[in-house]
Design a binder for these strands. Structure first.
Length: 640
DNA sequence: TGTAAAATAAACATGC
DNA sequence: AGCATGTTTATTTTAC
């Protein structure tokens, strides 16, 4: 090794010291065996399943829609829902009726369209009701209140729609007069809410707001903290069940709404008011426009109401789906006896995203932090590890596990990068693997120590929270392993990977060894794994890759372990065309490129935000031995 | 049970 | 002095 010590400096910031105590090493308990408790045993397609399916589809579409609606939509190309019927149907048509309020339809669709939609929905509802009745006994016992509520929702939507159809016919197309829209609005909201809403919607943004236009709400911002991330109109609280029968509830004021930074309704020089795309040069002009065109009048109010309902519906739906997801997770990964806090509000587990924000210490009761993620994909070993280290959530890496027996790091990371990013789960990889991966992932395949640190903290929530020891470990590994080569350049030293050395480091071990595979599987605590079922899962998950990234759940079971190579990355880089961690741009060849030490190490502070979770199909999902249709509903997650 | 690999901890050096 | 970086040694844990 070279022990020279030239004068070099490290330019980067000292990085994060989220000082959390280091944990002494500790042993682990036995191992969480996922219970085989079979909560529900539905084998065939039922009406409820149909409804579920419909809900899923609606939710997916709605999620996109919500993102558009609630985020101020930074992408200039994507227009919001507007009068133009051409724009709408793509997102709207996918949404099931319960996602769209009549008012919104009224705003969006032309009367003929509205009529057609209404008829369609009526037919659908009738069908559903009939099914419900036909199987009423079964449904009641199984689907319970959730479905009933859903039905109710449908019916009420129906009524609202009819009401609005009448209004439409009565007053022509444009609803400029105070109408039932207003009435229903007032019905649904208590006066204080209404006032607040009006104030929020029509109020002139304060000058300070105008000044803060720097960071408009973009998607990432939105997802960072669920409810408060919604734009004002959305965050205006409305009765949880916004049914015309009115409710009293006193929403706590959203403290964010006054300080939302830039105006959520303004972005890319364009007014983001639903149905409006007026161009505004600057904030001042926009404010003028807002006051003129979207002042406090009936129309604005109705539009606001529409928006509220949209958001509310979506939130409700999201809550339900999240709940279901957690139930699934609980069932699949955790002890059956463990009662899960199902009632956790969505907002609490949606805050995982912001990178710098340390999690609130994961309570021991909730081993699986990232509820919003689809940890169905997460490495079995990581889950396993995590699940049985309650008392010390930051237990030691169960190292060999990953490196040798689990999925290669690249595909694993690619698949679960979002999970690891948000979940306080220790990645099942060796430090060496991670370091190598980080370096290879960088544009120049070289990183400073600090950049390596940053990569760790960026990619893994675990390393955001537990900084005490792992940095030492990183340094230790860098020094220890010959495969990491320190290279000096003008500005400092960078670390590179000597691929040859890395390959030498560990001879292939378990290539094609049935015994090892078996051990691996059993070691992961899966019990018996049905190969054919895995294959099916893999296949099905393949299809997920075609889904839009936003709604692609990382729920694909995968089979990597069945073709485990000898080593994590070495096999991965060549096999899997995912350069790991979500940045699918790097070609495999690049990994083997000779390293060029560049003069100025790049700062990879906030690298390209990798979003795709659609990496591999290769993973293993802990499955109960009884084969069940896990794909029944996909965790509709990832509000990146 | 022994061994190797990896994690963990810590001492120490160096430069800024 | 304090910190970041880097090296080295020792011990523990884990899987084989």
């Amino acid at each position: 090794m070279m022990v020279e010590s030239a004068s070099e400096t490290i330019r980067t910031t000292p990085s994060n010291q989220n000082g959390v105590s280091s944990l002494s090493s500790q042993s682990d308990g036995g191992g969480g065996r996922e219970g085989g408790s079979n909560g529900d045993t539905n084998g065939e397609i039922s009406p409820v399943d149909l409804l579920h399916l419909q809900q899923q589809q609606a939710l997916q579409a709605a999620r996109q829609f919500l993102l558009q609606q609630a985020s101020g939509l930074n992408s200039p190309s994507s227009n919001e829902v507007k009068q133009s019927p051409v724009q709408v149907p793509v997102s709207m048509a996918m949404m099931s009726p319960q996602m769209i309020t009549p008012q919104q339809m009224q705003q969006i669709l032309s009367p003929p369209q509205l009529q057609a939609l209404l008829q369609q929905q009526q037919a659908l509802m009738l069908q559903q009701v009939r099914l419900t009745h036909t199987h009423s006994g079964w449904i009641l016992s199984k689907a319970s209140s959730k479905q009933l509520a859903f039905q109710q929702q449908l019916i009420q939507m129906q009524q609202l729609q009819q009401q609005h159809i009448l209004n439409l016919q009565r007053q022509g197309l444009v609803p400029l007069q105070p109408t039932a829209a207003m009435q229903s609005l007032q019905q649904a909201m208590c006066p204080s809410d209404l006032q607040q809403l009006w104030k929020e919607v029509s109020g002139v943004p304060s000058s300070e707001e105008a000044l803060k236009q720097a960071e408009g709400l973009d998607l990432s911002t939105n997802s960072s903290n669920s409810t408060s991330a919604f734009p004002k109109a959305a965050s205006a609280h409305i009765p949880l069940h916004s049914l015309p029968n009115g409710q009293s509830h006193t929403p706590k004021r959203d403290s964010h709404e006054e300080h939302a930074g830039s105006h959520p309704l303004y972005g890319h020089g364009e007014c983001k008011w639903p149905g409006c795309e007026a161009l505004c040069e600057d904030m001042g002009q926009f404010i003028k426009h807002l006051n003129n065109e979207h002042a406090l009048d009936d129309r604005s109010t109705a539009q606001c109401r529409v928006q509220m309902q949209v958001v509310q519906q979506l939130e409700i739906q999201l809550a339900k789906e999240s709940e279901r997801l957690q139930a699934m997770m609980t069932h699949l990964h955790m002890r059956p006896s463990e009662p899960k806090p199902f009632n956790q509000p969505v907002s609490t587990h949606c805050d995982a995203y912001p990178e710098g924000l340390p999690h609130p210490p994961t309570s021991a009761a909730t081993p699986i932090t990232p509820l919003r993620q689809g940890p169905s994909v997460i490495s079995s070993s990581s889950l396993h590890t995590h699940s049985h280290s309650h008392t010390h959530a930051v237990g030691p890496i169960r190292r060999r596990n990953s490196d040798k027996y689990c999925t290669p790091i690249a595909s694993e990371l690619a698949q679960n990068c979002e999970f690891y990013k948000n979940a306080d789960v220790r990645p099942p990889f060796t430090y060496a693997s991670l370091i190598r991966h980080a370096i290879l992932e960088s544009p120049d395949r070289q990183l400073t120590l600090n950049e390596i640190y940053n990569w760790f903290t960026r990619k893994f929530a675990y390393f955001r929270r537990n900084t005490a020891t792992w940095k030492n470990a990183v340094r230790h590994n860098l020094s220890l392993h010959k495969c990491f080569v320190r290279v000096e350049n003008v500005k400092g030293a960078v670390w590179t990977v000597d691929e040859v050395e890395y390959q030498k480091r560990r001879p292939p071990k378990m290539t094609g060894s049935p015994t090892l595979v078996k051990n691996m599987i059993s070691g992961l605590g899966f019990g018996s794994l049905n190969a054919s079922y895995q294959a099916a899962l893999a296949e099905s998950s393949l299809s997920l890759l075609n889904s839009p990234p936003l709604v692609t759940p990382p729920s694909a079971a995968s089979l990597n372990m069945l073709h485990v190579g000898h080593d994590d990355v070495s096999s991965t880089v060549e096999q899997v065309n995912s350069n790991g961690s979500c940045s699918p741009t790097l070609s495999p060849q690049q990994y083997s490129h000779p390293v060029h030490v560049k003069e100025e190490p790049t700062e990879v502070e906030e690298d390209s935000r990798p979003v795709s979770l659609l990496a591999g199909v290769t993973h293993s999902l802990p499955l109960p031995s009884d084969e069940r249709d896990l794909e029944e509903d996909l965790p509709t997650e990832e509000l990146e």
